[in-house]
Amino acid sequence: MNKDVKVIRVKNLYKKFGDFTANDNLSFEVSKGEIFGFLGANGAGKTTAIKILCGLSYPSSGEISVAGFDVYKERELLKRNIGYMSQKFSLYEDLTVYENIRFYGGIYGMTKQEIDTKTNGLLDQLDLQHSRNKRISSLPLGWKQKLAFSVAIFHNPEIVFLDEPTGGVDPVTRRQFWDLIYEASRAGITIFVTTHYMDEAEYCDRVSIMVDGRVEALDTPTKLKEQFNALDMDQVFLSLARKAKNVE
């Protein structure tokens, strides 16, 4: 992690839908290579904030830059420099492993040579060389997930947004998945991750917890536990979430 370089800067972010304030004065910064946990109950405003950071929707007001690009004016450049993976698997089941990689590399403007070279390295690293021409539908869930993550960072983004990436997966596979996350972080990619699993929150460098559209807590897991006098992140989360009004 490089604390001098900030890849996400959010200052006074507001997002309103009519009378409802989904994001209420958010301000935070994320450093290069940091693993940033973005927590909150359903309806707390996480998804709204992620959409804004990914350039999918405009904030009502606030100064926000992602990977050095302004979310109002430089969306195209912003999108080129981020990766995204959601809870639903984002690979095409009826395409082969190679075709999926080729497609995603292609839409990020990579050339065929770049893609082919990188694909070989990636498949060696994941030990998936033998499945290169197999359809995604024939792979086990854990492999699909690792591959989906690798595809999300295939174009070397500054930041990768992971929206509940480990939903519905067994603990062993989750652990392996986090190994990939650490590796990406060491390679200088910033990880912005939302999760429902509090044990995963412990793996993050810093954690922010949203309640009713506001960031109620933001610090390292250790400090948060001290602050709330809690044994684990679960207790921290619960003591904050109890205050929530907007619960789905």
Binding site: C54, L56, K79, I82, S86, Y92, Y104
Partner: peptide
């Protein structure tokens, strides 16, 4: 339905 639309929208494709 498969969630790939999100990925496409997040990508530089307009």
């Amino acid at each position: 339905e498969l969630g790939t639309m999100e990925i496409l929208l997040v990508s530089p494709l307009n």
